[in-house]
Design a binder for these strands. Sequence first.
DNA 1: AAATTTATGCAACTTAGTCGCAAAGGATCT
DNA 2: AGATCCTTTGCGACTAAGTTGCATAAATTT
Lengths: 123, 123
Amino acid sequence: MNEQIQTLCKEHNIKLTTARSLILEVLKRASHPLSYEQIKDKMNASMDKATFYRNIALFEEAGIVHKFESDDRKWYFELSGTTHAHFICEHCHQITCMEVDLGKVEGEVKSIVLKGLCKECHQ
Amino acid sequence: MNEQIQTLCKEHNIKLTTARSLILEVLKRASHPLSYEQIKDKMNASMDKATFYRNIALFEEAGIVHKFESDDRKWYFELSGTTHAHFICEHCHQITCMEVDLGKVEGEVKSIVLKGLCKECHQ
DNA sequence: AAATTTATGCAACTTAGTCGCAAAGGATCT
DNA sequence: AGATCCTTTGCGACTAAGTTGCATAAATTT
């Protein structure tokens, strides 16, 4: 029953149920984006995937959570924060966060994903 | 029977079959990344999706073609060229190419995907 | 406490992409 | 040319992440 999570939901008019609390607590502890499988494994309780995805969709609409696709055909989720970039390594599939200076861009940028080989895999 | 396509395949030790020629010609004419469905529709002949994906995988390994995922759970393909970024609009799903200056990054960056709202959809 | 709304879980479904296998197409050798 | 071998193609079955319908459960309202 995290204080920050309660206020976060209250701010966005989202009722805080058990399922929602479980998802948000995992995301809050995470240091990088996680997939459904990864989030499920980090929860102390079981949750149906339909419940998970429906609540994630709710969070997304509210702007609390942000998602993007990696190159393994899975979606990765994280709490919205500062717009930072993710580097996905094509070899080891590790996702790391990084800062990128974009300069001026027309429109609104919500996510930046770089793919390639991380420094370890690139030798 | 494009001259450039023939030399491209010869350079990478890839035998130029009818199917491969069809795929590469569509990609060569394209001004932005295309999905399997889009490429199929632009071809004058029919092609099985297994054939398509197998040849695309071959092109990828050779470094001729580059792919990435949009937010519609589809892969988009384009001929490899200069490392440029793609902006995917979450609202109208249009993909546009843009130049981004990254500065120095450790490892090797192969693709950059920005998501958000394009200037039209952002008003 | 009954009625209404909202959230959850199960199972069936959707769909982009993959895989096994047999047939077709080329290349090579005698 | 004909026989043999290897590669490519197409068909159909399969895979798996994510979605949807529907019935039940849990809140919320009256």
